[in-house]
Design a protein around this nucleic acid. Structure first.
Lengths: 165, 165
DNA sequence: GCAGAAATGTGATAAGGTAACATATCCGTG
DNA sequence: CACGGATATGTTACCTTATCACATTTCTGC
């Protein structure tokens, strides 16, 4: 699989600097509202994810944090990332052993990740129907869902077209 | 999280020996039909998963394989497990870094895993609506889904009741 | 039987993740 | 403001999970 380009999300071009900026502000608001502390490492970790605009491994984030003067041991990255995930500011993409900034912090949503196996691009899609269906299926078995992971592997529009040629 | 009991699936009691046996036969039929080889290691790996009837780590499966006279290096287990997953005879449970035998080999299905965070039990639920919803959401973005991972973490009926007390 | 493909065995090592503990910082309370 | 508990950070060490590379064997079609 090729290295993911940081140039698109949901498979559409857009202004990164802008969306990263507004998302960071939303994240700060969420943290304030929840009464949790978006400390320097945590904020920087989120910024890194937002800047890169792609799924990043914990060690990759760690390298960036270390370069910025923070600790260079794994727990530094894992703790910051865990905090972000716990508070809905980032997501964990299990299939990639990676993390990505949440594009809708604060909004209640069931993140669905669409991962292109060709270009590596990861898109976060909103999909309430998926969540509803999952809750329904679980409910029929008496299972009480707390968190859900929904990830699809396949081809993004661009790579699908290219593959068809 | 407590160690998962091998005594239930889909949170209901049933006859293991029987279901393991019939599932193994179905798996053999699937392999024959597909023209792929269910070699000794692969078959044994599947048997192990069926016998234990729970999600098992690759190294745990490896230990069992080694005890049965197969190689004792990681690739032995990973290759066998990969084969099983590729051919729909087992599933990978990403949240647990584990593998579980498929209970419906041959049937086209979207496996949904319900993982109890208390007792560790893992149930494979059929949930076509989930798959449909996911395909629909992906389609709206022009994404072409090939494989999907759907996993829910929460409480099984038993642990939910116990927690409520 | 033979050649190519598929599968296995093995050693080595990369990548991902956590436990434990010391130190520092924050923050409410007296 | 000082103090004490809770929270957060830094660091060491280590464990688990997963893959690469390459030699050897086994299968399969011809």
């Amino acid at each position: 699989m090729a290295s993911p380009t940081p140039s698109a999300n949901a498979f559409t071009q857009h202004d990164h600097a802008h969306c990263a900026d507004t998302t960071l502000h939303k994240a700060e608001a969420v943290a304030a509202e929840k009464g949790v502390r978006l400390t320097p490492v945590r904020k920087r970790a989120l910024e890194i994810l937002l800047e890169e605009h792609r799924a990043m491994g914990a060690y990759e984030v760690l390298d960036r944090l270390a370069a910025d003067g923070f600790g260079n041991q794994p727990p530094v990255a894992y703790r910051a990332l865990e905090f972000l995930v716990e508070n809905g500011l980032a997501h964990r993409v299990r299939r990639l052993n990676a993390f990505a900034a949440c594009m809708r912090p604060g909004e209640e949503h069931a993140p669905v990740f669409l991962i292109c196996r060709d270009c590596g691009e990861v898109a976060e899609a909103g999909a309430d129907e998926v969540r509803q269906a999952l809750l329904g299926a679980a409910d029929r078995l008496g299972f009480h869902v707390e968190r859900a992971t929904v990830e699809a592997l396949g081809l993004c529009p661009k790579c699908y077209q290219e593959a068809a040629q």
